[in-house]
Write a protein that binds this DNA or RNA. Structure first.
Length: 271
DNA sequence: ACATTGACCTGGGAGC
DNA sequence: TGCTCCCAGGTCAATG
């Protein structure tokens, strides 16, 4: 579910509520995520202060006194801040209870998410090591994409969803950005010129920034930390609009499958 | 090195 | 109502 805007929305929701508070205890209801959560995590985290909440790619990084909790929301994960008395539901896999009666609760029906602890003894940073550039930084520009795309025959949509190239762009925002840039998602990455890559990087930044501003996209599972949905789904131009009119030309939006994922585009104005 | 495919899970909606 | 099938916002390992 969550791409960069949803993860960033989550981060911005949590930080002001919980930064500076002390984790009093952790309740693990289900440890079977993409990797098993060690039962010892509950003891490790006890009485540590949460100093800051960061983000790298689609990972949330919770900085505690003696290490970092790394959380990935997978396809269907979400985090909420609640009062501790709130009863848990079926897919609420863990709670971290803080001072002031506040709980950080992780929910993930499909269990593709990830929760792991890193510190000096146990650095699982390799997960983050191979990640590409952050899309909302100056280093992400037309030159960068052009250089990384040299000789690449993969279609440009898969290319911009490749987290080793640029992070945070998932299936929804890839289609949206390619539409904005007027680029056909089936085009080979290596056959796009600099000017169009400049347009594409600007389109990606614009789509992601607009989605963050709207609190993310809520099609099914996603909601913000307060449980309220984002509203960027109202501003989607192509995603999930098969058969509908293009918002820019007289064309009709098509759905195709590229590298196993649904892809939406307008054949008339994307080349 | 690169491109493609399937596996991991559960739930919701469409169609019969 | 209930069954089957297909689909879903992500990653990772295995295959040519």
């Amino acid at each position: 579910m969550p791409e960069l805007p949803e993860v960033e929305t989550t981060r911005r929701g949590i930080e002001p509520l919980l930064a500076g508070k002390v984790a009093r205890n952790m309740l693990l209801r289900c440890t079977k995520l993409r990797r098993p959560i060690p039962r010892s995590l509950a003891n490790v985290i006890q009485n540590q202060r949460l100093q800051a909440v960061g983000r790298r790619a689609k990972y949330l990084l919770f900085d505690f006194d003696r290490g970092q909790l790394l959380v990935h929301l997978g396809m269907s994960g979400s985090l909420r801040v609640l009062n501790q008395a709130k009863p848990a539901h079926k897919h609420d896999h863990w709670d971290i209870n803080f001072d002031d009666n506040k709980t950080l609760r992780f929910t993930d029906p499909r269990r593709f998410g990830l929760t792991l602890w890193r510190d000096q003894n146990d650095d699982q940073g390799s997960l983050l090591d191979h990640l590409g550039v952050e899309p909302l930084t100056a280093g992400f520009n037309g030159q960068y994409l052009l250089q990384r795309a040299r000789c690449r025959r993969v279609n440009v949509k898969s290319f911009i969803m490749d987290q080793r190239i640029v992070v945070g762009v998932g299936n929804i925002y890839a289609s949206e950005a390619l539409w904005l840039a007027g680029i056909n998602p089936k085009r080979s990455a290596g056959r796009i010129a600099l000017a169009r890559y400049e347009k594409l990087t600007k389109a990606i930044k614009k789509v992601l920034n607009n989605a963050i501003e709207a609190g993310g996209t809520s099609l099914r599972d996603f909601s913000g930390v307060d449980g309220k949905p984002g509203y960027f789904q109202l501003r989607l131009r192509v995603y999930d609009r098969e058969g509908k009119a293009c918002r820019r030309c007289a064309g009709t939006i098509r759905r195709i499958v590229t590298t196993g994922r649904s892809t939406y585009y307008c054949p008339q104005c994307q080349h």
